[in-house]
């Protein structure tokens, strides 16, 4: 990768101050997204994937969190020190965000057409009719049949899949260089998910935008992301090119996650559930955060944070004391 990354999160540690302590939500998270790249961040609930995205966009409530270490640079802008005006400029044109529930992103009292024209004209010096043309073009690019009619509808009159396609169309309205999609298809049916993700991917490739795709679904990552970061309890445990990470996983957590699915065993036979639950993130955890549930855990795992090491494929890294043993 020669170009500078569109988003670079370096060694980010973040906590939420609580009454009498803090919730250590992220620790030493490093995520890098190059121009035009689709990067998946995958993990179960409580792993910190959404907090990472929200922190990168500075969308967390300002007084509710504390960055204790690290840096976030988005499109050359230092996000931790950016002022309100910088953020507004960035959110409007350079970066776009797609959330799980499209209804929250669409003002229920406005027609789709008016909404889109407004968003387009907020950042581009063009007239109303030209903006309308552009909006119709965007809807067409999302394979929305009869865009003219859809422009006259209200959000609640449309299906969830249609709404999410409109949100994606809007996300690309101002030629973003980075799109952050937080569980964009979790609320949708699989057939609709396929369509929405395929459109998102195609659109990003067309305009050369990078995508940060946050999901809990390893299958989605496998089919749509170029590279992947696997997170557990606020830490990135394994990362690298998607194929390498998902077909030759090296971290015990990634392996356990892949094996817990019903696809991994014969029908009706017991599934490989991961015993136990997340560690209490209010406590300081000196060792590996996965040690409490890991079959390979030894004293060193509980005593000190695991170092990062390289796997066989270029760019494939993991944080595990037993990285050597796991290559077999």
């Amino acid at each position: 990768m020669t170009a500078s990354p569109v988003l670079s999160i370096r060694n980010l540690s973040l906590e939420f101050p609580l009454w009498g302590g803090a919730l250590h939500a992220l620790e030493d998270v490093t995520i890098e997204i190059a121009a035009g790249e689709i990067v998946g961040v995958v993990g179960e609930s409580g792993c910190g994937k959404s907090v990472t995205a929200m922190a990168a966009m500075r969308l967390l409530p300002e007084r509710a969190y504390r960055v204790t270490q690290g840096a976030i640079v988005m499109l050359g802008q230092d996000m931790l020190t950016a002022g309100e005006a910088d953020l507004r400029a960035l959110r409007g044109s350079g970066v776009a965000m797609i959330f799980q529930e499209p209804l929250t992103a669409l003002n229920p009292t406005r027609r789709i057409g008016d909404l889109m024209v407004e968003v387009i004209r907020a950042h581009q010096p063009i007239g109303r009719s030209e903006a309308r043309e552009k909006a119709i073009g965007l809807l067409d690019s999302m394979r929305i049949a009869d865009a003219q009619a859809v422009m006259r509808r209200y959000p609640f009159e449309l299906s969830g899949g249609m709404r999410q396609r409109i949100v994606i169309a809007l996300a690309f309205a101002n030629d973003p260089r980075l799109v952050i999609a937080d569980e964009p298809t979790t609320a949708l049916d699989v057939t609709v998910q396929r369509q929405v993700l395929t459109l998102l991917q195609a659109r990003a490739r067309d305009v050369g935008a990078a995508v940060l795709l946050i999901t809990h679904d390893l299958g989605v990552v496998s089919e749509y992301a170029d590279s992947v970061y696997v997170m557990y309890a606020g830490k990135v445990v394994e990362s690298g090119p998607t194929d390498a990470v998902l077909t030759t996983p090296r971290h015990p957590y990634t392996r356990a996650l892949l094996q817990a699915g019903p696809e991994a065993v014969a029908p009706k036979s017991p599934l490989a559930a991961i015993p136990g639950g997340l560690p209490d993130l209010r406590e300081i955890i000196p060792g590996c955060r996965y040690a409490g549930r890991c079959g390979l855990a030894t004293d060193i795992c509980r005593g000190a944070a695991p170092p990062q090491s390289q796997a066989a494929a270029p760019g494939h890294t993991l944080s595990c004391w037993h990285a050597e043993g796991m290559s077999r």
Partner: peptide, 17 residues
């Protein structure tokens, strides 16, 4: 439509949904 692990990058026709 079910996304699968390790089958590589998706290339799909876009059907009516």
């Amino acid at each position: 439509a079910v996304p699968r692990i390790g089958t590589g990058r998706a290339h799909h026709a876009l059907d009516e949904t």
